[in-house]
Simulated scan of single mutants.
Amino acid sequence: MISTSSFKRFPPPQSYAFVSFPVPHVMLVVFNRPKALNAMTSAAQYDLETLFTWYDSEPSLRCAIVTGAGRAFCAGMDLKEWNQLNIRRAKGEHTTQAPMPRSGFGALSRRHGKKPIIAAVNGIAFGGGMEIVSNLDMVVAVKSALFALPEAKRGVVAMAGSLPRLARTIGRPRATELALTGKSITAAEAKEWGLINAVTEDGAADDDILDRPVVKAALQYAASICENSPDSVIISRAGIVAGWEDGSAENASRLLSENWEPALNEGENLREGLRAFSEKREPRWIDSKL
């Protein structure tokens, strides 16, 4: 594990997730409420928002991975808490805090952010867990993983950002099938539909997190990302997100060039990449200042 002493600031404390730094430049976040299938509480979502905001601001970190403890990735919102919130609302009580932050469920389902996050789906990803998966940059899943939006079966709606995003990723008919029937799909189906990048063998629920094949695969993807210029990774990701979110490819291209090209050209990493190529050596990247 990498020491946190080199960080500009320590990571914010978490009530729900376990945070570690298994290799240089990579943050591993484990949803750690296994007895409840990692169901999310309102407080947990705000804790995670502070964590991912910190991640984007910590120069030495270049990629993050999220996974779940036990046999689930995330079963969605804690329905018992949700029921209690509805009871309080029915009584006319008001809370000062919304059930979830602006960045969405788990601070991820509507996150734009600056740096990439990979999901290592170790089990069921239902409801909010599926909403998280729908908005992450890359997804690896064990072959026994199941994905579903069962909200309609509970009289609620997946309103944390997944519905329009899934329509763009897997198409309207498949997104409709998931949302209106509440059916679950396997990892193999999710890969066929273009929702996930890769499928791995299963691991035992009590395996050490780093020994799980799905986490190892996610770490391999993270290592490939971290080998590249952190400036290029940030800007390339911004271009993909802009094209996915904004609709117009040409408008996204124009905004990417206007907003990011000057910073890229002025950065040391672009100069280092060109020097390294000319000198026939591996580049020595510095932490991004973007």
Rank of each mutant, 00 (worst) to 15 (best):
P150Y: 10
D231Y: 12
A75C: 11
P150I: 05
A148L: 06
N32K: 06
R62N: 12
R62L: 08
G194V: 13
P164T: 08
V66P: 02
I132D: 03
E261W: 13
E189A: 04
F277P: 00
I170R: 00
E151H: 13
A72G: 07
A72F: 09
C74N: 14
L264F: 12
W260L: 09
L163A: 13
V26A: 05
R110F: 03
D207P: 09
L149V: 09
A148S: 15
L270G: 02
A36V: 08
G106Y: 05
V139F: 12
F73T: 08
W54S: 02
A158N: 05
A263D: 13
S6V: 15
E177L: 11
S184I: 02
T186E: 00
N86H: 12
G104Y: 04
S103D: 14
G247V: 11
V214Y: 03
R237Y: 03
N228I: 01
S236P: 03
D211C: 10
Q84F: 07
R9M: 09
F18K: 15
E227D: 15
I2D: 03
I118P: 03
C74F: 07
E282Q: 09
E227L: 14
G129I: 00
G171V: 11
E131M: 03
E49Y: 07
A223P: 04
A179H: 04
N265Y: 06
L290Y: 05
V133C: 14
K35M: 15
G194P: 07
S184H: 11
K191Y: 02
G68S: 07
L195P: 01
A120K: 01
S278I: 09
W54Q: 04
G76E: 08
L210T: 00
E245W: 03
D78W: 11
R254M: 14
V199C: 10
P22H: 08
L51F: 00
A141Y: 14
I87G: 06
F10N: 10
S162N: 06
L85H: 14
S5F: 09
F21M: 04
I87Q: 15
D246W: 14
P116H: 10
R275D: 06
G104K: 02
P24Q: 13
E189S: 10
Q220H: 14
L264H: 09
K114G: 09
A252V: 12
L149I: 11
E258H: 01
E192M: 10
T200H: 11
G194K: 02
I235F: 08
Y46R: 12
G161Q: 07
P213Y: 08
R89G: 10
A44Y: 01
L108N: 00
T53Q: 15
A263V: 01
R62I: 03
F18S: 15
G123P: 09
A249K: 13
F31Y: 09
P150C: 06
G155C: 08
L79I: 01
E261F: 15
A39F: 02
T176K: 10
V233W: 00
K114I: 02
Q97P: 00
I286P: 01
A119M: 06
G129L: 00
M77L: 06
A179N: 09
T169W: 00
